[in-house]
Structure formats: structure tokens, C-alpha cells
Design a protein around this nucleic acid. Structure first.
Lengths: 151, 151
DNA sequence: CTTGACCTTCCCATGATTGGAAGGATTACA
DNA sequence: TGTAATCCTTCCAATCATGGGAAGGTCAAG
């Protein structure tokens, strides 16, 4: 099957399939005479594995590890579990960080009349030179608020 | 004061101060004869405002809006509140998304022995072709799991 | 006057993903 | 068979906020 069909069957875009190939996450595929990539059901299965791992927020680097453990029938389950739990830790730290932001903002918003007058605790807090610095940022993975989806 | 001192006083790195200037978030500063940027206490105050907004996860675009509302003494507090609440919504969606990932993973990890044997429900779930697709991803801001800190 | 600490601009990298251009291949239909 | 639509290919650029580093100018202390 062609890359478009593999994309549809796996839920990974054709663009990303080529990208994953280029960085070595998946091996180079067979090509037709005219250069089209050809995928098997097995390849699609691998792509689905990758997509599911992405859906769980694993980085491509971690996915590479997971794929190789997946393909190693002798793997120790503790190696997989370690990657998963490490990732859970990262996720939970990030969640806490976002929760702090949200609760601070909700608190400020609750005290803001939200009318046409200028008085606004939100702005005042941002402008407050005495404000306690927010807790030091974890070396949080999860970049900043870009446009991408987490997928 | 020089950019390095302004950076130390505001908590915004010199690199980022130059960047904010280049994108127009802050105005171009006065320069010394030799080209050094010169900052006043007022500039530092603005930089602190920006840093606090960043700490709350606002995008540079939103910060530009917040800064101009801050400087508008006639602003309506509802305009500020709208930005804040919009951001709270984004934060909360993201939190929910991460919580789903974490809880799925914790559930899987709980059922993984984590020993030297190969059996591992985590890998099996990732490889499971019947797996229900995860809920459609929100057009989540907050990119993927990159290296950056949130700051 | 030298040394070291600063400053300047410019380019590059990050991570995952999308967009698009230019051009070749395949397919469907009249 | 001709042609148009739809695929595919590679390559380059942009995203977002940030940091790294090079090459070179400036300044202050010794």
C-alpha cells in the first residue's frame, strides 16, 4: 500500500511517516520502481503503536526505546515500566505546574469585576513589584504554549 | 543600566529582552553612543510584568494585549478578564488531557509486574490494534514534550 | 595597556508538525 | 488515447520561546 493509505490506516499523517523514517524511528521502506514507498500491514501495525505512544505523550526518543523493547521478546517488563513511570512523573509535574497557573488566574479573575471600569486585580497583580516569584519552573518538558496539538 | 543589569533585575534573560524588542513586544530602547542598550527602572518594571505573565503561561501574543491594556488607564476590566479566562480554559483543557494520559499510564503500570520477565501490559496495550483511539486532541496549545521550561 | 567582563549582531538548534512549491506517477473517465 | 485529477516525490520554510555560540566592539579595573 502507498503512504497515503498507510497514513489513513494508522492515523499517522504521511508527512509524519516520512519524518519518522528520516530520523530513523522506522526503517526505510521498500520502494516501487518509480520511487513510491510501499507499506505492509506489519508496517501499519508499527505506525499504530507509535501513534498510540504519541497519544500518551511520549517523546519520539522514548518511543524509539519503546519500539525496540516491543520488538525484543526477551525484554524485561521493568524496562518498559521504568519508561512509563518516568513519563508519568513528567506528566504529573506538568499538571501541577499548569494547575498552579490556572488556580492563580482563577483567583484573580474571581476578584475582577469584569465590567467597563478600569480597576482590575489581574493587571494589578502582574504589575505588582512585590509579587512573590512563582515556584521555580521544573525542567518541564512540554514546551510553552505553541500551536501544536499534543498528538 | 545595561541589558545584563536589567536582565538580573527583571528575571528576563538578556537574550529574551532583545527578542522581545525585535518582535515589538517592548519598544526599542535608547542606546549609548557605542550602541549599548540602556534601561530605566520603568523598563525593568515592564519586563517584570512580562515575566509574571509568562510565568502564568500566557503567550507572547496575549502578553502584548495585556501590556497594552495595562498601559491604558481607561481599559475595561472585562477586557483583561476575558483574556485571563480564555487562558484558564486553555490551561484546564490541557490539564485534563495530561491527566488522561497519566491515568492511562498509571493504570497500565499498576498491572505491569516490572520484573525481568517479558510480559508487559504497557507494551501490549500500545500494540493492541483494537485499542480505542484516545479522545480527539483539543487544539491544545502547549506543544509537545520538548525540552523547554515553561518560563 | 592589558585583561576580563561586558555588549553588539547574526546564525543555528530545539520538537513535532504542518504547509507549500515544483515536478513526476498513477488512475479514472470521456 | 488523451487529459485531468489525484496521488506521490524531495526540499524548504514556518511555528513558538528559548538558548548556544561565534566574531567582533566597548568598558572598567588593575
Amino acid at each position: 500500500m502507498n503512504i497515503g493509505q498507510a497514513a489513513a490506516a494508522s492515523g499517522v499523517s504521511a508527512k509524519m511517516i516520512r519524518y519518522y523514517e528520516s530520523i530513523g524511528l522506522i526503517p526505510k521502506t521498500v520502494r516501487t520502481e518509480s520511487g513510491y514507498r510501499v507499506y505492509s500491514d506489519h508496517d501499519v501495525h508499527t505506525l499504530r503503536f507509535i501513534r498510540r505512544a504519541r497519544d500518551l505523550g511520549f517523546s519520539v526518543e522514548q518511543i524509539a526505546d519503546l519500539v525496540s523493547l516491543w520488538q525484543d521478546r526477551e525484554r524485561a517488563s521493568k524496562d518498559v515500566k521504568a519508561i512509563a513511570l518516568d513519563h508519568v512523573g513528567v506528566l504529573e509535574r506538568k499538571i501541577r505546574e499548569l494547575q498552579e497557573m490556572a488556580s492563580t488566574l482563577k483567583h484573580l479573575a474571581r476578584n475582577c469585576h469584569g465590567d467597563s471600569r478600569p480597576h482590575c486585580p489581574i493587571i494589578e497583580e502582574l504589575a505588582n513589584d512585590e509579587a512573590a516569584p512563582l515556584p521555580a519552573k521544573v525542567d518541564a518538558k512540554f514546551g510553552t504554549l505553541g500551536k501544536g496539538s499534543v498528538r
